[in-house]
């Protein structure tokens, strides 16, 4: 079994005005896994993320990094901020420098890199994320998609072991979304643990190893892609729709169109391949019938 890189134990948090944001969160996150958090607005996803980067201190409960309890003193925070990077939902909240290069290198200087080392590292990340052409532009000239990539670069440059992305798809067009998610996949293949929150159930279903469903500061359900979406009651409670691929597959089984019970397909491509596979679909002789709209 892969060891847990992060462990959240009975985490409680309420804001100074008394509103309860998190009410007993338990999570185990495997090293080098892809994790998705699903849940409606205000479920506590962002608040939970702020705890994982130690920006917020829990009111009760514990967080462990590789078995070591989070501590909130200097030495621990330095090693933690290097290992757990967070990309905020709104890149405007994250990018504060007028220059792209300066913003990306901010974290490196905090970790004590020299200017030459930092410069080389920034170039390297720029090439990896394919954003070198943005380096000479002022940050306020960038589009939302470009800003998002720069915000990601500012975190990736610190070489975190865990990369947290709060709603990476918010405000992105499909093209930019794909570029961003491909970058996250590259990081995952390099050994990074990637945690995202999203409202895109179809994406979470096809991408994540582990999915958590959050609502009102509690985890309603956790599991692998084919486990979490079975419970319709919980999906309704969290105001989520089942992924369309999964729903279609279930309907096909219900209607007796599938001859062998197989693991559910994870993507549109897999579903379509299965539909045209004669070993999977039941053979029926086509009949011409008069179809009536009811």
């Amino acid at each position: 079994m892969t060891p847990n890189i992060l462990e959240v134990q009975n985490l409680h948090f309420h804001y100074p005005d008394g509103s309860k944001a998190l009410q007993g969160i338990n999570m185990l996150i495997n090293e080098n896994s892809k994790v998705a958090l699903l849940g409606p607005n205000g479920a506590g996803k962002s608040t939970l993320f702020l705890h994982l980067n130690a920006l917020l201190k829990p009111c009760a409960g514990k967080i462990r990094y590789k078995g070591a309890d989070f501590e909130y003193h200097k030495a621990f925070l330095k090693s933690l901020k290097k290992r757990v990077g967070i990309v905020f939902q709104n890149p405007d909240h994250q990018i504060f420098s007028a220059s792209v290069k300066q913003d990306i290198s901010f974290g490196l200087f905090n970790l004590g890199y020299s200017a030459t080392e930092a410069g080389a590292r920034v170039e390297e990340v720029g090439e990896k994320l394919n954003i070198c052409e943005l380096f000479d532009k002022p940050t306020h000239f960038l589009s939302v998609g470009q800003k998002k990539m720069v915000a990601l670069a500012g975190v990736v440059v610190m070489q975190p072991e865990i990369l947290i992305c709060d709603e990476p798809n918010a405000g992105l067009d499909p093209g930019n979304y794909k570029i961003l998610m491909n970058s996250l996949d590259t990081l995952y293949r390099e050994g990074c643990t990637v945690i995202i929150s999203t409202h895109d159930v179809d994406f979470a279903y096809s991408w994540a190893d582990t999915i958590f469903i959050l609502d009102q500061g509690r985890i309603l359900k956790q599991g692998t892609f084919d486990q979490v979406f079975k419970d319709r009651r919980i999906l309704e409670q969290a105001k989520l729709k089942p992924p369309w691929v999964f729903e279609t597959w279930e309907k096909m089984i219900d209607n007796g169109m599938v001859s062998n019970i197989l693991p559910a397909p994870r993507s549109q491509e897999q579903l379509y391949n299965m539909m045209s596979d004669r070993r999977i679909m039941k053979r029926t002789t086509p009949k011409i019938i008069e179809y009536q709209n009811v």
């Binding site: 920006l55 200097k74 990077g85 994250q94 504060f96 974290g107 905090n110 610190m158």
Partner: peptide, 11 residues
């Protein structure tokens, strides 16, 4: 907040 999340204000 953006600075603290990337280890700003230390030392």
């Amino acid at each position: 907040i953006a600075q603290v999340s990337r280890y700003g204000y230390h030392g």
